[in-house]
Amino acid sequence: MRPFDYRRAETLDSVAEGGRIIAGGTNLLDLMKLQVEIPDTLVDINRIAGLDRIEPQGEGLRIGALVTNTEVAADPRIRAGYPVLARAILAGASGQIRNKATTGGNLLQRTRCPYFYDPAMACNKREPGAGCSAQGGVGRMLAVFGTSDACLAAHPSDMAVGLRVLEARVEVRGTDGATRQLALEDFYCLPGDRPDIESVVQPGEIITAVILPAPVAGSVQSYRKVRDRASYAFALVSVAAVATMRDGRIDHLSLAYGSVAPRPWGDDAVTDALVGQAPDAGLFRRAADRLTAGHTPHPDAAYKLPLLRRSLQSVLHEVTGLSEAAIGTDKAEAFA
């Protein structure tokens, strides 16, 4: 690991002075050991007061940036009102890592693309303009949507997929002390020709919280993660869903997809076409076909398209009651 200066921030104002923020550190320190990340200064934000709480906000909840993944998944209000978020978090990492990983840090974790992780390989995300070794390389974990010629890497977070499907907003504090809130799809940048820029968070800025809207009363929520082994592995694909039914038809529906794009993915046209419809296997098959139509990923990752189609259909069957709910599908309840 390269030498660095270590500074402990006691206030949010002192974060604005710059330096690489460290919270849980489970991803950053790993990357520093590999010299993928070489920060001059680490700013430890763990002692900043007030960021470690989950509090009511409006009809929803405000999750402080330092609340650990374990604490979010175990919180009774999250388990009752936002089960898809608890399920997504519990599907990720290991017990030890979830105890350390924070809400803000999880959102800002880096891709696990093997070419990003190997400083001997060309990577535009590590070194803009260097080239992309994943093009023509081994690529079964790569993204299939939202990529560019410069970068094929997928965002690995499960938690972020749960947040997107719940229409959560990320609160970012600027260097002037003012905060702004962004939907997940606006928080993350697509790679374009600058894959090193992954989110709207600028140097000196900090994520202060994630804001959850009111729970979707009576909804059925599901997180389906498909991976190479049963536990402690990143997703090949994942599907998150929140649905309510009325008079035998889909009344409300939200869908998000993980490990298929540089950010938690969504497709409004696919979702909108399902709302108001009676659940039906053919309807779901057509929705799945529409989701992946026109995409031609890296050949090694092409298997993700049929895997995603089948996963989506299975989840839609469960959240609309067309088939019995498996583990990972839960009914949301009010937490008042």
Binding site: G25, T26, L29, K33, D44, Q96, N99, K100
Partner: peptide, 27 residues
């Protein structure tokens, strides 16, 4: 492994298990 993959370094910090390889003493 020294990278948080194997768990051999697991200790309890303030009552919670963590990978001691993936955190700085200074923290």
């Amino acid at each position: 492994c020294d990278h948080g993959q194997c768990g051999a370094c697991t200790v309890h910090v303030n009552g919670r298990r963590v990978n001691s390889c993936l955190t700085l003493a200074a923290m």
